[in-house]
Design a protein around this nucleic acid. Structure first.
Lengths: 239, 239
DNA sequence: TTGACTTTTATGTTCATGCTTAATATTTTA
DNA sequence: TAAAATATTAAGCATGAACATAAAAGTCAA
């Protein structure tokens, strides 16, 4: 079962070896759900390694949602081990080109306006101000691949006022000129409207995955974007 | 901007302090996209800390997808910092009860059969065998909350043959009796069929989020489940 | 030029030790 | 008895030093 595969040799356990050993014990219910694990020091003694090594193993198990650690409290096996899925949200051009397609871009609409309430809902306390709305299509081999409806904060990124968004996507400009340090994400299914269906070239009322992203830099709003994918789009998780 | 908030004091930077300092430099393009960072040792010298501390900071930045590290190669700022979103897939009963609703369960269909090709697609090399199919509804306050279409591997978990799945959901039984060490996940939008719409109590052709999960234990298939959520269901990411 | 070997190098891992800190138990006080 | 002060505990953090390892660069020969 490979629970020894992470040790250099049997007398010198690596942190992965320790992790796997403890993981196995949890799976085998030697340490059952809700149970308290021995102190790091004891385990270190048992495995014949330093406490640092046990700690490294424990951090990994904690990151995977298997255990919970509290100062003084100790270490506990979670009652319901979390299933934590990590998706990588791709940079669109890159994703398209990696599929061997030609990337294209087409501006649909651009205007300064007041964001509607459902968009403002993503902004928390950020004051309501007119923003730059940009609707655009991302193309793969000249066919619609993704539609985005974006609101840009000109207060935070004034430079955007001077960018020609009919030639370059806001997405791309931002990637190159404006980093963020916070990103809120929301994912849901959506029945496309007739207008959206026309733009995307899909049947009306088709179900598509929507990815809503709001990014910030140093607590200042940058942009909020709602992305419609194609009906067959799938997001794969790497656990 | 809080980049000093993680230091105990200015002369003794913690690993979070070092991390934030480097992060800031990346945001400010002192270390631009694709740039190579100084060696850990140099940075340690600069920050006046041990190499271990720099390493801890670096690992965090790496986990966040901001940098890439290679042995011998060194440390590099990623050209396109990854947006890595982490979702927590909830245990259904728990999720329902946390919303203050009563959890309920209702078996819809159960039979041993050959899984169709689109289900087998999730199984990789796993040999094609008859499996136990279970279709069931999860209820919140007696109203449909989630519909699952599940295939269970009786070879890997023979005990399932003796469980009364009209009283207890397979989900719940598995959580309590069968852990997994691998979980493949797939997420997409789906237009509900008339049959599904009837079961879920939603309008026909409504768009819903589908969560497909396949779990394994020690390289042996446990189960593959396709979960339909309600149309208004949203998955929130914690970045 | 190509392929096989060797050296170099920056990250990766482990260790022993000491201190810090948050949470919990215990004791004291009102 | 409850609230406040205090002690204890187990994880968290930092250090310096040593060794491991994979990948890159360099060397050499066919």
């Amino acid at each position: 079962m490979g629970n020894e595969s992470h040790s250099r040799n049997s007398s010198q356990p690596t942190w992965m070896g320790v992790r796997d050993a403890i993981h196995t014990r949890i799976l085998r219910r030697d340490y059952g759900p809700g149970a308290r694990l021995p102190r790091d020091e004891e385990l270190a003694g048992e495995f014949g390694c330093a406490r640092t090594t046990v700690q490294r193993a424990m951090r990994d198990l904690q990151d995977r949602g298997l255990i919970e650690r509290r100062r003084k409290g100790g270490t506990w096996v979670r009652h319901h081990p979390l299933t934590r899925a990590t998706f990588e949200i791709p940079v669109i051009r890159q994703e398209v080109e990696e599929k061997g397609c030609t990337y294209g871009y087409q501006l649909v609409h651009q205007a300064v306006a007041m964001p509607p309430l459902e968009v403002q809902a993503n902004f928390g306390n950020w004051p309501t101000e007119p923003m730059l709305q940009v609707q655009a299509l991302h193309l793969a081999d000249h066919r619609p691949y993704m539609y985005e409806d974006r609101w840009l904060c000109l207060q935070t990124v004034p430079a955007l006022g001077t960018v020609d968004l009919s030639r370059q996507s806001a997405n791309e400009w931002l990637v190159h000129h404006q980093h963020y340090d916070r990103c809120d994400l929301r994912l849901y299914a959506h029945k496309v409207t007739a207008h959206e269906a026309g733009l995307m070239g899909v049947a009306s009322a088709e179900a598509v995955l929507v990815l809503e992203r709001t990014t910030w830099i140093e607590s200042r709003l940058i942009t909020s974007v709602r992305t419609l994918t194609r009906p067959d789009y799938q997001l794969l998780a790497t656990t």
